[in-house]
Design a protein around this nucleic acid. Structure first.
Lengths: 131, 131
DNA sequence: ATAAAGCTTCCAGTAACTGGAAGTTCAAGG
DNA sequence: CCTTGAACTTCCAGTTACTGGAAGCTTTAT
């Protein structure tokens, strides 16, 4: 499929997809006319990149995570260690995101129509800070 | 407190904190010696920035979210609408992050020691793709 | 008193896109 | 068959969000 279709399916702009190719994150085929030709497997990689980038992982982290996806020696110890490191990171992000959501939800439900600007729950937006 | 302390408490490098001041995300006091002087409220803002940036929100989105925090007209309709938009976004991120974690966990637990490289659950890494 | 650590500004460099120009190829309508 | 517009190509420049380093001032610790 052409880059436009891959863009639609992955949720990434065509520009970004070409950029990811430049930095070696994927290698789509080329059709006879010179157009890039994406397989479903390419689209999976792209969709994965879209997701993990939007969740705050760096491109280099994504490259590592993709190695889990593509690595033929997936049972090796360091690949497993990498996955576990990332799992811990994801769990931390999940906790932070949950906290952020709860606070925002409180803000929407409890502060609506209240004209006092010193609503104390707002402090929760910043999470716990070590004093 | 000095920038070093604020850096420790917020989890942001001093460089980044100065940068956030440059682009108008906070305005710490200055001590007589010219050093920046951060209040606990500044640290809350910084911690909030640290969290939301690491979760994939852009600086401009963070600026908006901070307006929820600081806006004295917090009961206005558009501020509430903004909070609700962000809530939806956060819920989507939560779902994606959860999926990513589950797949990765599967990968770690089910594929360890298995030398077959075509483990089908790996496909889950990229999430559902519209065919 | 002096050295090291921490602060200041400023300027340059990097990461990860993003926009636009200039040209080629394809799909649809006349 | 011709043309016109959308989609594709490469290349280069610009933007966002930092990040590193120089040069110099202030504070803290021996």
């Amino acid at each position: 499929m052409n880059i436009g279709t891959a863009s639609e399916k992955s949720g990434l702009p065509a520009k970004t997809i070409r950029y990811y190719e430049d930095i070696g994150l994927l290698r789509p085929d080329r059709a006879d006319n010179g157009y890039r030709d994406y397989s479903m497997s390419d689209v999976h990689r792209l969709r994965f990149l879209q997701r993990s980038r939007s969740l705050g992982f760096s491109v280099e982290e994504c490259r590592q995570l993709l190695s889990l996806y593509g690595d033929k020696e997936r049972e090796s110890a360091d690949v497993k260690a990498l996955a576990e490191t990332k799992l811990t990171e994801i769990d931390r992000k999940l906790a932070e995101l949950t906290e952020l959501r709860n606070t925002l939800r409180h803000l929407v439900h409890n502060c609506h129509g209240d004209s006092r600007p010193d609503c104390p729950i707002i402090d929760g937006l910043s999470g716990r800070v070590t004093q």
